[in-house]
Simulated scan of single mutants.
Amino acid sequence: MGWGSAGNIFDPVARALVDAGVPEEQQEEVLTQVIRTLQEQDWDTEYDSLQDFRDKPGVVKAFANCGIHWDDLS
Rank of each mutant, 00 (worst) to 15 (best):
M1K: 14
M1E: 12
M1P: 13
G2N: 14
G2C: 13
G2E: 13
G4K: 09
G4W: 10
S5N: 14
S5F: 10
S5H: 12
S5P: 08
A6W: 11
A6S: 14
A6K: 09
N8K: 09
N8I: 01
I9D: 08
I9Q: 08
I9G: 01
F10V: 08
F10G: 01
F10A: 14
D11I: 06
V13D: 00
A14G: 04
A14R: 07
R15T: 08
R15I: 00
R15Q: 09
A16S: 08
L17T: 01
L17N: 03
L17R: 01
L17G: 04
V18C: 03
D19V: 00
D19K: 08
D19T: 05
D19I: 00
A20G: 02
A20C: 02
G21A: 04
V22E: 02
V22T: 13
V22G: 03
P23N: 03
P23C: 00
P23E: 08
P23R: 07
E24R: 06
E24C: 00
E24H: 03
E25T: 01
Q26V: 00
Q27D: 00
E28H: 01
E29R: 08
E29W: 04
L31Q: 07
L31K: 05
L31S: 06
T32Y: 05
T32F: 04
T32E: 10
T32V: 02
T32S: 13
Q33T: 08
I35P: 02
I35G: 05
I35M: 09
I35W: 04
R36L: 09
T37Y: 09
T37C: 09
T37P: 02
L38Y: 05
L38W: 05
L38A: 12
L38E: 10
L38V: 09
Q39G: 05
Q39R: 15
E40H: 09
E40T: 12
Q41H: 12
Q41D: 13
Q41L: 12
W43E: 06
W43V: 10
D44A: 13
D44M: 08
D44W: 05
D44G: 13
D44T: 13
T45P: 02
E46C: 15
Y47D: 15
Y47M: 15
Y47L: 15
D48M: 11
D48Y: 14
D48T: 12
S49N: 10
L50R: 12
L50Q: 11
Q51C: 11
Q51F: 13
D52Q: 15
F53N: 07
R54E: 14
R54T: 11
D55F: 06
D55E: 09
D55H: 11
D55I: 01
D55Q: 10
K56L: 02
K56E: 09
K56Y: 05
K56N: 05
P57G: 03
P57Q: 04
P57R: 05
P57F: 00
V59D: 03
V59L: 12
A62T: 04
A62H: 06
A62I: 06
A62W: 03
A62C: 06
A64G: 06
A64W: 03
A64E: 15
A64P: 07
A64Q: 15
N65A: 02
N65L: 01
C66N: 15
C66R: 07
G67Q: 11
I68C: 11
I68L: 11
I68W: 09
H69F: 15
H69T: 11
W70S: 13
W70Y: 15
D71K: 15
D71C: 11
L73G: 09
L73T: 14
L73F: 15
